[in-house]
Structure formats: C-alpha cells, structure tokens
Amino acid sequence: MLSIKNLQAKIDDKQILNGINLEIKAGEVHAIMGPNGSGKSTLASVLAGREEYEVLGGEVEFLGKDLLALEPDERAREGVFLAFQYPVEIPGVSTINFMKTALNQIRTHRGQQPLDAVSFLGLMKEKMKLVEIDQSLLNRALNEGFSGGEKKRNEIFQMAMLEPKLAILDETDSGLDIDALKIVANGVNKLRSKNNAVIVVTHYQRLLEYIVPDFVHVLYKGKIVKSGTKELALELEAKGYDWIKDEVSVA
C-alpha cells in the first residue's frame, strides 16, 4: 500500500528526515517510536503534505501513485488521513458542514453520489457511537473550545466518517487520560480491517497496549534504526531510548 524509499526532508534550514525506508501493506498496523526530535511528527506531516516541509529526496508511493506529487486535499481524497497532534480550532466553521463537505468531495472523487442530508446525518450518528462523541459537540464550531480529549476523539470521529485507506495517528495519545485513551484506541481498532493500514506515531508504549501493532520502528536522527514486533515497544518502555542511541553510535 505505502512504500517509502530513502525519504529526506527539511524544515527551514534543518534537515529532519535523513533517508526513511518503510513498506506498509494493507491490514497492517505500524508503530513509529523514537525520542523527541527524532523526526516522527515530521514523517507524519510530510506524508500528509504539510507545506512547510520540503522534500529533498526519495520517493513515496501510495497505491501505485506518487504521493509527493499530490496536494494535501488530493492525498486525502486518495485515502490518506492524518489525525493531528494538535487539531486546529476553526471558529465559525460548523463541524457538521465541514464533515459533509469533506465527505462529499471524497465520495465524488471515488465516483460515488454525494450523500443527502438525511443519509449524512444517519451515517454521522452511527460513527458518533464509535468514538462516544456527543452530538452537542458536533453542533459547535470545529474544535472550538473543545478539551484536549474531545479534540482527539473528534479526529477519530472524522477518520471513521472518511474511511481512509491509510490512517496516520500523530501522537494521538498525548494529553489523553486513560479513559479517553481507551475510547480513542477502541475507535481505531473498530476501524481496522484487512483493507486499510494504520501508522501510529507515539513517544510512549502506552497507546500500543490498546492498539496492538504488527510492527514497531524506532526513528532516531531522521532514520529508522531498528524495526521489530510489538515486543520492541515493551523493551523500549523498560529500557528507554538510550540503548538505541548507544547502539547507533557504536555502529
């Protein structure tokens, strides 16, 4: 589904990604871990098409398409979804209108009929249950005045609505208490299928107890320095990141 080859990127004058290689197949969950400043969120941002980042080299192929050549909205319509670390508050834009516009632009792109108001609201009610989000929240302006937990749940709600092929969760666990974390993880798990894939970017192993990954990759200084299965995450939790740094410097 996703094939990243030797991806390098910078922001301002600082190179952050120094040659990332990663293959993700449909049905898989990959965790990207690593110490602060290792490039985890940069990777998520570059995949979603954030403009501040400049790609210096490498390739990203998504379902046979050159992902890097696409605008952020085109990527989303192809099936990429980024759950933001810091979801943006947009006063005056109602969540419902926003979601309806997004869903119908995606549906049109997929060759489906846009949903009418009734079917849209029906779908919304169904997906709201999934992340235990309240209608009153969605009647408000997008993320405006939402608590940290509500914002993250809204991200997963949007993911449920748009049914992406590749979901990238950028530090979705940050700022969540354990109950909110379980709700969010539960929502993600219900959306997992053999046809889609998930990248979980996280600093801590905590989230991975609830969203169990097939593979764990450790990012350090803009490169994947170690890959393994979920046991690697436990090892990192127990030993911290220093031993990885030592291994890298020895090598």
């Binding site: 605008e71 989303a76 933001f84 943006v88 632009q105």
Partner: peptide, 8 residues
C-alpha cells in the same frame, strides 16, 4: 491545511 487534509 487542516481542512485540506480532510479532502476539501
């Protein structure tokens, strides 16, 4: 960017 990232 947030709106675009949802396909708009």
């Amino acid at each position: 960017f947030y709106l675009q990232s949802r396909g708009i």
